[in-house]
């Protein structure tokens, strides 16, 4: 489970998060949607221990990330927006490194490469990989530690439609196994009926919860979306 309370963060005097509250349930996929600069990626980075919040608290699996960063990070796995890797290492070397770092069984890296359909990159240097292959290698790395909390920042942007669908299936099966999955995305319509919750982030806050089976068809529609008073009260309760 992920719980963020009153998160505030400014960069160079510009307030990016203005008291963001968020809760992502165990065994569910929660989407975080919103325009550029709404604070989605900053929220993800705070949860992944990459950025420190100016105020507020973030708990991952009941562990406060500000107080015990390493313990919190052990229970999560994060896939950044455009995953980049050491250019001279091969896919296999990279997976083995992260596997050793997370203490996983030696057979798991190979299995994850297969799951993400990138077993061919085992001996290929990551500099030679396309954007889509890099994303899939990132997916293999995300699933490698079998962490109870999965954070994905704009996954699937470089993936073809078939692999975007496959990504959703994988995340659904991970959620069914009891994991907490939090995803930020711009490709809202594709998640219609896939996610369990969808939170609309605007100006550094969660403005309302959208119905996961009735998501806006495109980004313009999302921008025009005006929450009703009840929706706001629900978020206040979160």
């Amino acid at each position: 489970m992920i719980v963020a309370r009153d998160l505030r963060k400014s960069f160079a005097g510009k307030e990016v998060l203005r008291g963001l509250n968020l809760r992502a349930q165990r065994g569910a996929i929660t989407l975080l949607v919103g325009a550029n600069g709404a604070g989605k990626s900053t929220t993800m980075k705070i949860l992944a221990g990459l950025v420190k919040a100016d105020r507020g608290s973030a708990h991952v699996n009941r562990i406060d990330i500000a107080h015990d960063r390493l313990a919190a990070l052990r229970s999560l796995s994060y896939l950044p927006q455009s995953p980049s890797f050491h250019a001279r290492l091969t896919g296999g070397e990279l997976l083995r490194f992260y596997g050793q770092l997370r203490g996983v069984a030696p057979s798991r890296p190979g299995a994850m490469l297969e799951l993400a359909g990138v077993q061919d990159v085992e001996r290929v240097r990551t500099a030679a990989l396309s954007g889509g292959m890099r994303q899939r290698l990132g997916l293999a790395l995300l699933l490698l530690p079998d962490a109870p909390v999965l954070l994905l920042d704009e996954p699937g942007l470089s993936l073809d439609p078939r692999w975007r669908k496959r990504l959703q299936e994988i995340l659904q099966s991970e959620a069914e196994r009891g994991k907490t999955v939090l995803v930020t995305t711009h490709l809202i319509a594709e998640w219609n009926g896939v996610a369990d919750h969808c939170l609309l982030c605007r100006e550094g806050r969660i403005e309302c919860e959208l119905h996961p089976n009735d998501l806006p068809h495109d980004f313009e529609e999302l921008e025009r979306f005006a929450p009703r008073e009840g929706d706001r009260e629900n978020v206040a309760a979160v």
């Binding site: 221990g49 390493l70 990070l73 994060y78 980049s84 890797f85």
Partner: peptide
């Protein structure tokens, strides 16, 4: 460029 991935690992 790998730091976002690397530094989100449980690693001091």
């Amino acid at each position: 460029e790998e730091w976002p991935l690397l530094l989100s690992q449980p690693l001091r």
